[in-house]
Design a protein around this nucleic acid. Structure first.
Lengths: 336, 336
DNA sequence: TTTATTTACGAAACCGTTTTCGTCTTTTCC
DNA sequence: GGAAAAGACGAAAACGGTTTCGTAAATAAA
């Protein structure tokens, strides 16, 4: 079956192409009767407008790009749900692109977006991203960019974040208050905004509680689970000053930490207490249940999407910044 | 900054638009020297072709649609990774659309896809989907459709599935072999292919082991976690013939089951043994660790994507069917 | 030397929609 | 009754690539 175009409708009704187009868009120029006829025929012939023709002509695609490191991660998948809920309501499409935490992928994706494929971009940078040249290049083409969660301070753009510093602080203070004295912080990257801010909160909390931060107690994990497992295991095997508390800055380190403790016969929370940044619903049924810093993933997605829509409408939101707080949910893994 | 078009390049080099286009596409009609000049200028001016213009002219978008019920689910997010890995390598874009398990969303999405927005569609139907009219309508517009995981038997289309019957059988037989006599099956929908096939496997396993399948032992869960929790709890509180084994046909029921057992002080696996269809990495650190039927999510995504590409290239794959087996991974939750 | 072929490029149509101008008819208003 | 205004529609030019069909010059074949 051939795709039915506006021209086919025009022929059928003995009207001009422009009349059809206007009728479909409910223009005041067209009589009510003609509109009815057009709508009716369009419905029976199952007419669906070619989005690419509209995009080409109108210079807007009603599509946004979402650039994230990973989709198999509860924070990002929930954030995507939030984004989608807003965009669907406004009739926008969502093009999801994965960087797999690699800068080069991110760079190529954003370069491609200079083509006008998307009207705006929601970005959570990769763990490798250090420079923001590629982001500025995109913004220079009048494609609005809104950061969410993982931002690049160097780039001036709108951002939706959570209170990483305070959360890092809260997690650490919580462990201290539950008796920990040798707390380690597991980061995810040396450059990533969220990882560093959470770490600063961690440091501040230690300082405020008159605890020194041992050099080896801050570890930047990699993207390789096996490697991280070794690292964590080694820490937990230290003869002197074995860690009695762990702040894990990212969800996927949960498995690593629990696994390492299990394998070393260290009991959580008796021997080691754990707090993890995580949105896993399943945290409640871990054994022991996991104390989490739960990020407002869905809300962050919603907020970022709304802000991007404003930017697309022409508002200047470059300096907008919204902080949606995370919450510490104490559970079994950190009880005294 | 203005977007640089092919026309701008033409002006700059005193060449015609068609020459530029051909040079960029490495046509044999253009001399090596001219190609060099064009490529060089394109690079310095940061030219990126407008995808909508190409799509309009060429009648193909180099974009595929992926229609799934949900993205915050490890099976689907892993499958998306598989899809993306193939599509990215072939220079295709991936438009992800969520049905949230609602038929009407699915119908509207597929209808929109009749517009030519995508060159093909990968589909895992919603739990509400009973009829395939909307899918046939799409296929009638020459948009190839490949099912993955959740298929609709009524529709003749290519499909990538896992061995649901055998997996349901294996899960159940495993529980029987570990001593269970009163095994319940938690489905996800009365109509969904995967749910029903797994159930048939369950029934067959019971029959083969000379166990009767009590009427109340097959439950179709809903999309509402709280409701499911109540249902499961009620089952586990039965005075007569309390279940001693549970086959949960979908990942998100894990939390429900563990939670209910915890709250009722039922010990897993001593009082109740559990097998769950799940791709959660975290299954290993549950307490007890969860015996899973793990689906080849990534591979299914890859296979579906490859098949769709074949279909897009014009091959008739309508009757192609590929079954990629799942594996039963015995862990603590089902030990005798 | 003439003819055939290859090489390298340009003009213009085309994809399907949107939008800007006309234009012609019908109303409305003094 | 005549001018002005409104109403209803059509022609045609965009939007930015791609592709077909020419064509002039250069080369090869006869």
């Amino acid at each position: 079956m051939k795709h039915v175009t506006i021209r086919a409708l025009a022929r059928e009704l003995n009207l001009s192409v422009s009349t059809i187009s206007k009728a479909l868009r409910d223009s005041y120029e067209i009589s009510a009767e003609t509109k009815q006829r057009v709508l009716a025929l369009a419905a029976t012939l199952n007419y669906t407008p070619n989005p690419y023709a509209s995009s080409l002509r109108g210079k807007k695609s009603r599509t946004i790009g979402v650039v994230v490191p990973e989709v198999a991660d509860s924070f990002f998948s929930l954030a995507i749900n939030g984004i989608e809920s807003v965009m669907k309501a406004m009739g926008y499409h969502v093009l999801i692109c994965l960087t797999h935490e690699q800068f080069d992928n991110e760079r190529l994706i954003l370069k491609e977006f200079q083509s006008g494929r998307v009207d705006g971009v929601l970005l959570s940078v990769s763990r490798e991203t250090l420079s923001g040249e590629h982001i500025r290049d995109l913004a220079a083409q009048d494609v609005p960019v809104v950061f969410f969660d993982r931002v690049l301070d160097e780039v001036q753009a709108a951002r939706i974040v959570t209170n990483d510093f305070e959360s890092g602080y809260a997690a650490t203070a919580h462990l201290v208050e539950n008796g920990c004295r040798e707390i380690v912080y597991l980061g995810i990257s040396e450059s990533l905004s969220i990882s560093n801010r959470r770490m600063e909160g961690y440091r501040q909390a230690l300082a405020d509680h008159r605890l020194t931060c041992r050099a080896g107690n801050v570890v930047a994990c990699t993207n390789d689970a096996a490697e991280n497992y070794k690292t964590v295991k080694k820490m937990l095997q230290r003869k002197a000053s074995r860690p009695d508390g762990i702040v894990a800055s990212v969800e996927k380190l949960t498995t690593t930490v629990y696994q390492a403790c299990n394998d070393l016969r260290l009991r959580i929370p008796a021997d080691v207490k754990v707090v993890c940044f995580s949105n896993l619903e399943i945290a409640t049924i871990l054994h022991p249940s996991l104390t989490t810093i739960t990020q407002p993933a869905f809300e962050m997605g919603r907020a970022a999407a709304s802000l991007l829509l404003k930017a697309i409408k022409g508002n200047n939101v470059m300096s907008a910044e919204m902080v949606i707080p995370s919450v510490l949910i104490p559970r079994g893994s950190s009880l005294r």
